[in-house]
Amino acid sequence: MAKPRIAVFKFSSCAGCQLEIVNLENALLDVLGAIDVAYFVMASRDMEEGPYDIGFVEGAVTSPHEIERIKEVRKNCKILVAMGTCACTGGLPSIKNWTSQREMEARVYTELWAINSTTAYGIDHYVPVDVYLRGCPIDLNELVDLVKAALLGVAPPFRPHAICVECKLKENACVMLQGKPCMGPVTAGGCGALCPSHNKGCEGCRGPNNDTNAASLAKTFAEMGLSKADVVRKFRKYAGNTPQFNEGAEAL
């Protein structure tokens, strides 16, 4: 691929993933040599029209306006990347999905007449997605790997399996064996087992791995002393929309 034209779009999100891109610093300069940033509100003043070779979408889709906008973005991008957990699975915004819409809106807003929100979904609920860049926030090494893979025209070398593999390769002391619940065994790797490497249980931000046995892990959480409500929260924190994690939430 010749210098690909890149666009970055923000939907319902904290902008943390875009900030990660800006944080690339040294690597960013090298990457910038290889790409042409055509649309990136946070980092550039010049906004160019589409179509784009690669579109990075951050954020969940949570309003009728966003539903229309994501369809437009899809039309304008050859490769569409769901960037970050919100765009991949609905992410943190999706924790509202199990409470009634009006009740949730009333907790946050006063002028309810002006609020028109929808169930929070990842963007693939509305449009086909080519690549998922997982994590809250995204992993910069994976972002660079993705750009390189796109330039080479090959599939990005992402880990589809459980976090446990990278955790063990780093020889971390297993947090589960220290009595701390960890979503690592059902969560897709690629982050380098970031939280367990700091001796904290994985929160599952990267969503389900490619062979999720969430029901089995939920049972183990219960045996470790977690209440049913705690287990449900574990599985609905980032990717409750996915059938895999939903199975964990409903296992007990």
Binding site: H161, A162, C164, V165, K168, G184, P185, N213
Partner: peptide, 11 residues
């Protein structure tokens, strides 16, 4: 039903 296929045992 029980195995998480997490790869720990082989690693």
């Amino acid at each position: 039903d029980s195995c998480l296929a997490c790869g720990t045992c082989t690693t």
